[in-house]
Simulated assay, not measured.
Amino acid sequence: MNFAYTLVYVSDVGASLAFFDRAFGLKTRFLHESGAYGEVETGGAGAKLAFVDHATARDSVQHDYVAADASDKPLGMEIGFAVDDVQAAYDRAVAAGARALAAPVTKPWGQTVAYVRCPDGTLVELCTAMG
């Protein structure tokens, strides 16, 4: 089995793609003409980061779910990006419209981490790479 992709369910796929470009420098790889599905370039081989609108997601899953942008609290999952300069990445994301949750801090194991919440509700960790 191979990990293929992460799908983030959002209200506006185009807005999320534009935000991820501004905040994290992840360019749009693909946006379906319907606007219901899109992907960003992640720089990684294989696995994709994609966005799906709520109507399409609910139709696919055939159940309702907690929409991240409708929840006061972040959902119990995150997307993590390894970066060389966590402070610069954090500042860029906040300037682009992310909500600051946890400023950069160096953990006891030596990794620097910070957390932001995107306008679509997605929780993002910005961190230095481990080992």
Rank of each mutant, 00 (worst) to 15 (best):
V8N: 10
F19I: 01
W109R: 01
R92M: 04
R58V: 05
A57L: 02
D85A: 10
H54N: 08
G35P: 01
G44A: 12
V66Q: 12
V116F: 10
G38T: 03
R99M: 15
G76P: 11
V94W: 05
V8H: 11
G43Y: 01
T106F: 05
W109S: 04
E41N: 12
D84M: 06
K73Y: 15
T56W: 12
A15I: 01
Q111D: 02
A57M: 04
S34Y: 02
V10M: 01
Y37E: 02
Y5Q: 11
D53N: 15
M130F: 12
C127E: 10
M1P: 13
A67Q: 11
A70I: 02
K27E: 14
A89K: 07
E41Y: 08
A89D: 04
A36C: 09
Y37V: 07
M130W: 09
G97W: 06
L31K: 07
M1E: 11
D64N: 08
V13Y: 00
L75D: 01
I79L: 14
G43P: 00
A15Y: 03
R99A: 14
L75M: 08
D72E: 15
G97A: 06
G97F: 07
V83D: 05
S11K: 14
G131R: 10
D21S: 12
A4P: 00
G43S: 02
V105T: 13
A50C: 11
D84N: 15
A70Y: 04
A96F: 03
A4L: 13
I79T: 13
G80Y: 08
Y37M: 09
P108Q: 03
G43K: 00
R58T: 10
A103K: 14
R22P: 00
M1N: 11
E33R: 14
A103C: 06
V13K: 01
I79P: 04
A129V: 12
A18V: 03
D21H: 14
L26V: 06
L17S: 00
T6A: 15
E41P: 00
T106W: 07
D91R: 06
G80C: 13
F20R: 07
D85C: 09
R117Y: 06
W109D: 09
V8R: 11
V61A: 08
L101M: 15
Y65L: 10
M77H: 13
Q111Y: 01
S34V: 03
V61H: 04
T6F: 09
F3T: 05
V8E: 09
G38Y: 03
P74A: 04
R117P: 05
A18Q: 11
G121R: 10
A18F: 00
D84V: 10
G35E: 02
A98R: 07
R29E: 14
A67K: 14
Q62I: 05
W109G: 00
C127W: 07
L7H: 11
D12P: 04
F20E: 06
K73C: 13
